[in-house]
Design a protein around this nucleic acid. Structure first.
Lengths: 150, 150
DNA sequence: ATATTTTATTATGCATGCATAGTAAAATAA
DNA sequence: TTATTTTACTATGCATGCATAATAAAATAT
């Protein structure tokens, strides 16, 4: 399928995966972002919300909104972080722990299935291209930052 | 970077590209979706809107909203499609043609740059993995459709 | 110790994706 | 021809991403 551009391939494929994830989450009356968040929280000790964003690739502002709806659904509770008065500690409720298992299964299964159906060489190629794209964008950003600080 | 999952790699990378495209479009007081749409319209004869969605991987409902804002900005005009009373023909205005060139440059440059910085083998691996992902999702869908029709 | 800067979080608004529902016209069936 | 189904939009609402702005607390500078 080299007849489609790299950006189109990325976009269309991520959208298809996101749609699938949302459908799976929907069966549990949940959403994709909620599922990712459930997976990122330490089910034992809870997690400071600052740890979650980077783990999931989610900005603080998006995370904040997701956490709000998760709290309203009774999946998590926010506790004050004793180590930092600004921060909060996100803890799973029993209900949250239950839902966590399903999300985990869906995500693991997807990733395992794909890995099982591609060669190591193809997978390496995939990650190499991903790396080049991210480097290209980072370099652009650095360039822009320097220019703006001129 | 094989320490990240396939879904994460896809998501984070597409988001980075989308952000970059939006920043570039923003310089021209435009947006990513507007840029893609400009590129998909035949600058000479115009395009029936039914042709645009599939070309861009955009659903009709999303396209409809994008076209509305593009019309308000004076980038396109909707003409009735003489061949189909239900449909519309999307035509670029002179202003739209102007903006189209910039979008084209950004998208071409991105794709060319990435291609120039990866090996053919890596690129093939990338597309192979993309194909496997899309097949997996399509098969799931077919399975589900059959099940729901049981 | 006080003033300034950085960090953590929340609130909002816009862009865009999907889902659903409604409308009008074309295509098809009877 | 008339009735039914399909197709091409359009309107809306929710989910989620980014940007910006506001607030409070921590960290740093003086």
């Amino acid at each position: 399928m080299k007849d489609i551009t790299i950006d189109y391939a990325l976009r269309a494929t991520w959208q298809a995966v996101a749609k699938m994830y949302n459908e799976e989450a929907g069966k549990e009356d949940s959403t994709m972002a909620t599922g990712f968040t459930l997976l990122s929280i330490d089910p034992e000790k809870g997690s400071p919300s600052t740890a979650l964003g980077p783990k999931m690739g989610m900005e603080g502002t998006s995370l904040s909104r997701t956490l709000k709806s998760m709290e309203e659904k009774g999946l998590i509770i926010r506790k004050p972080n004793p180590k930092d008065g600004r921060g909060v500690l996100i803890c799973l409720t029993d209900f949250g722990k239950e839902k966590r298992d399903y999300s985990k299964e869906v995500v693991l299964k997807f990733n395992e299935t794909i890995r099982d159906h591609v060669t190591d060489s193809d997978l390496q190629g995939f990650y190499n291209v991903i790396d080049v794209i991210n480097e290209f964008i980072s370099e652009k950003k650095i360039y822009k930052e320097n220019v703006s600080k001129k």
